[in-house]
Amino acid sequence: MHELSLAQNIIETVKQNVTADELTKVREVIVEVGAFSGVVADSLKFSFEAITSGTELNDAVMTIVDIPFCLKCNDCGNETSTEIPMLLCSICGSSNTQILSGDELRVKELKIAEE
């Protein structure tokens, strides 16, 4: 359970990307969370709300965009998404594969209220 420290990292990133004036106007923080990023989205949101409450970011909500696990097989060419992320192609059994998505943990964008 390290969502609290991740939420702190996210707040730091927000602060680095807005002016002091804009900080209180941040309304939405959009975060991409991959299926095997190891992060519990609800815990991350809860942590964010808990540590922004009563601060300049009080009015900001966190929106999580779920990114599914997707694997591309370099042998059979198929792109697959298994429930459990595995690097072995579930169609042809090849180990010559690459992860296309699913390990993201990224602050995508912020929405700022205009005057």
Binding site: V31, L105, V107, K108, K111
Partner: peptide
């Protein structure tokens, strides 16, 4: 709403 693009890994500092 004004949108500010960030596209930064949450663990960028750790990395």
């Amino acid at each position: 709403m004004e949108i500010i693009k960030i596209e930064r890994k949450v663990l960028a500092k750790n990395d």
